[in-house]
Design a protein around this nucleic acid. Structure first.
Length: 455
RNA sequence: GGAGGAAUACCCAAGUCUGGUUGAAGGGAUCGGUCUUGAAAACCGACAGGUCGGGCAACCGGCGCAGGGGUUCGAAUCCCUUUUCCUCCGCCA
């Protein structure tokens, strides 16, 4: 099987994939908010758009509002015609049984007329529906009241620091150099086999990497999360359900000749698992921790760096995913964020939490914060994980509902990183390296490192 | 990868050949009741969910028999197509 990047293919793959995905996007009618909110309270939706500094989208609200009125009108007249048609067809049935052929034929011509009328009406109906969905797709999820208002990532807000951001007396080497000293990284070879953005981790470096993941897995199992190994490839309908089209283009690797994509995170297959499912209210909350390799094209602002393994095409991740009821999602959000903080603290890595401001928040998200690890080399924090609640937006797109006494409701979905590595490995190395190049192994990792306390 | 078979409601399952009062028999599960000290059993009753539209509401209507399309006045039923599952063969860590 060949993996091909959409962007780079010159054989028509792009042209084949793009319209297909867009079609799917539109036809499945995935939207982030309930159209009833626009019918009943346009201002909430508009205020939300303003808060996110997307004023160019304001007109969409009124457009949807008006199209919706037209749509409902045409749906009502269509439904009436269909109702009449159903009635007459049943009558024809009983006339045929009684062998009253002439009477039946008379009625048939009436149904034929109705069908002619319906053809045009249905075109109008379908087009209106499509137009509404396209516009609805661009209207962002309503953000939480607590989200700080700001234009872009420069206005994100630090919530809290955990651990002292120490700067040791010696100069902490660049992570690639730390790895070089223990013969832990070979990028020359990976360049030959796979190109930039890949790596060979070797020896103790590879072992710490795996140890951290195993520890992350057990850490979450101890928090009563169910460990899951999901599929590492998913179909396009799942992909378009869990991310926007731009994200998809910039992130996902497509398998050539198949309707399959390599996951960019296990969240994709984990949320996809529940697509079109109705979950019994008694099973909630569903708390899962999944492992997967993650593949990302990283097309866009940053791209792939030359040295090091900070931003790469392939990494591994232990993730947490929670599906819960509306009233519980904020509790889970805070709990999940704290778990990641606790995890990094147990590895002697100072961290801080940084809340995403309104303008930097992805359209699907209600609230989100990054966990950032301290880099004693750069003397600043860098992102190692991200915790988000998507409200019911993701569930709405994918049809994930639960049945309770109150009726059927869309679930609230959340996800958070426990550990993504090699990035997590970098954080670990920089904070545990000694002047002589040796590396301290914290207590929690020793069982996974054959008992060693130092490399 | 090849060759067959299947998909009907919470579960099992009839209906498909031969299109029409079939939005779908029957059974189980579940819920309510009778009987009982209590329970079981038996008997009686309820039980298609979902989604979209209309209505203050009671309620009315559209869609809906794996998904999508077609034929027809009319489709669970006929045709095409996609997916999934099962059996057999092949291949393989």
């Amino acid at each position: 099987m060949t993996v091909k990047k959409i962007r780079e293919s010159k054989d028509g793959t792009v042209i084949m994939i793009t319209p297909y995905a867009v079609l799917f996007f539109v036809e499945r009618g995935k939207k982030m908010i309930d159209i009833k909110l626009i019918r009943e309270n346009k201002e909430i939706v508009k205020d939300n758009i303003k808060k996110k500094f997307q004023d160019d989208k304001l007109s969409l609200v009124d457009e949807v509002y008006n199209l919706d009125i037209k749509y409902r009108e045409s749906k009502t007249s269509g439904d009436n015609l269909r109702s009449e048609k159903n009635k007459i067809s049943t009558e024809i049935g009983s006339l045929m049984r009684d062998k009253k052929i002439d009477d039946a034929n008379l009625l048939k011509s009436r149904v034929e007329e109705i069908n002619k009328e319906l053809i045009n009406l249905e075109i109008v109906e379908t087009n209106l529906e499509k137009e509404i969905k396209e516009k609805m797709m661009q209207i962002p999820q309503i953000i939480d009241k607590s989200v700080p208002i700001g234009k872009d990532d420069t206005e994100n807000v630090e919530i809290e620091k955990f651990g002292e951001p120490n700067v040791p007396k010696f100069e902490v080497p660049y992570h690639a150099d730390i790895l070089a000293r223990i013969n832990g990284l070979d990028k020359e070879s990976s360049g030959r086999t796979s190109g930039t953005g890949f790596y060979y981790l070797m020896g103790d470096a590879a072992r710490i990497h795996s140890a951290m993941l195993s520890y992350a897995r057990d850490f979450m199992i101890d928090k009563d999360f169910t460990y899951v190994i999901p599929p590492f490839m998913i179909r396009s309908d799942v992909v378009t359900g869990v991310m926007s089209f731009t994200e998809m283009e910039n992130m996902m690797y497509k398998i050539e000749g198949e309707d399959l994509y390599l996951v960019g995170t296990s969240e994709h297959s984990m949320i996809g698992k529940f697509k079109d499912q109705i979950i019994d209210g008694g099973e909630l909350p569903i708390t899962l921790t999944s492992y997967s390799p993650c593949f990302r094209k990283e097309v866009g602002a940053h791209g792939i760096e030359e040295r090091g393994i900070y931003r790469v095409h392939q990494f591994e991740k232990q993730e947490m995913v929670v599906l819960c009821k509306e009233e519980d999602h904020m509790d889970w959000y805070h709990k999940m964020l704290n778990y990641t903080v606790e995890f990094f603290r147990s590895l002697d890595v100072p961290v801080r939490t940084l809340e995403c401001c309104s303008g930097d928040l992805a359209d699907l998200k209600v609230k989100s914060a990054d966990v950032e690890a301290w880099s004693p080399r750069q003397q600043k924090y860098f992102e190692v994980g991200s915790c988000s609640t998507l409200g019911d937006a993701q569930a709405r797109r994918l049809g994930i509902r639960s049945k309770t006494e109150a009726g059927t409701k869309y679930l609230y979905t959340l996800n958070n990183t426990v550990l993504a590595t090699p990035r997590g490995l970098i954080a670990f190395l920089e904070n545990n390296v000694n002047e002589d190049g040796s590396i301290n192994i914290p207590k929690v990792l020793r069982p996974y490192m054959g008992g060693k306390d130092l490399i």
